[in-house]
Design a protein around this nucleic acid. Sequence first.
DNA 1: TGTACATCAGTGAACGCGCGTTCACTGATGTAC
DNA 2: TGTACATCAGTGAACGCGCGTTCACTGATGTAC
Lengths: 202, 202
Amino acid sequence: MMALMASEQPYHHGDLPEALLAATAEAIDELGVAALSLRDVARRAGVSHAAPAHHFGDKQGLLTAFAAQGFEWFADALETVAGEAAGVSSVERFNALGRAYVGFSVSHKAHFEVMWRPDLCDHYDVVVSEPAGRAFRALQHGVEAMQDEGVATGSPTEDVMIAAWSLVHGLSWLVLQQRLEIFGEVDPEDLAERINRVLFPG
Amino acid sequence: MMALMASEQPYHHGDLPEALLAATAEAIDELGVAALSLRDVARRAGVSHAAPAHHFGDKQGLLTAFAAQGFEWFADALETVAGEAAGVSSVERFNALGRAYVGFSVSHKAHFEVMWRPDLCDHYDVVVSEPAGRAFRALQHGVEAMQDEGVATGSPTEDVMIAAWSLVHGLSWLVLQQRLEIFGEVDPEDLAERINRVLFPG
DNA sequence: TGTACATCAGTGAACGCGCGTTCACTGATGTAC
DNA sequence: TGTACATCAGTGAACGCGCGTTCACTGATGTAC
């Protein structure tokens, strides 16, 4: 303990994998995902440039772990919101899910970008597909609950699910890609609620 | 003419800018936009690696021209479809727009990806923003026409516009990101129609 | 029709750079006895 | 409590590579007279 406090740079980091993931988020936020390099990530975490390979193997390994972390947080966020909205109507509950979906994409821009790019990370790795599946099911349950309550029963459940997903996913990308500037300053979560009301007026 | 036919490799290309844009699409389709390099594009077009600089300046210049070409084709496609569907109901016309939107994203994957990425090209360059505006207005007119016919009048026009745009844009990305595989083999344009019917049952 | 000349398009060699990956190493930690 | 040893984490030098950009150049074209 004394030794650790005395030395500014302990040889062992403590939790380097976590620090590298945080550095990855920082680097992507700053320079964009296209410019991401392992050396820059290591630099930001204050370790030698060979250190990341020790934990993640190679660049794709790092990005797969990064996407996995993102999907874990994302699924947790959706499940939490669905749990908290257990008492309200199914439409209000789906509204909350939509707000959370878009809210996550804005507050975790770097993660969100990598999460959906199959060219950057390994989507078939279970560390990614498992939490991705959880997130999907959270949305799906939201849609099914609405249909159980008689909302949007004019279309097959599958169509409603794809429509609802497209709606929140599309809004997320339009916001991230700065395409809604023409509508002035708008809060993305409020927007999610407004467009959800168009899809599910019930 | 004889000379041109006799020599396999004429010194002057004929339309190198166009050939370089086509090579860009090919390279992105094959390797992903993250791996795009000017040298590879030149190689594919069969010219020296210094040639692209002559026409586009630098890499961002090439991608800006590429996005501009994409938006021109995109706007043309939407306007053509809207014109052809002048006789049908506004809901059917918007359906056609949605099919065209998603159809374009699938048949011009490389262009679509670059078009929406502000980190790769200059969105404020008028060669991009002009056709992008045309595409936007084509969608907007489609939405306004529906409201004029009494469809989706429960929400403000702006909300309906953002919802409709999010819907088709989101579906496009979900398809490109291979996220709808879980629903089996589906035709993207048919999907567009199905989810449009959820949003505008009228 | 022919000649001179300006302009444009594409070349190819050269540059310096940051990258990912490898590898033998050393420092630190934890466990067995 | 102390010692020996195995294991793990991070180092730093080295490698070869493809990249974007520059620059003096040459080949081709088109226009003026």
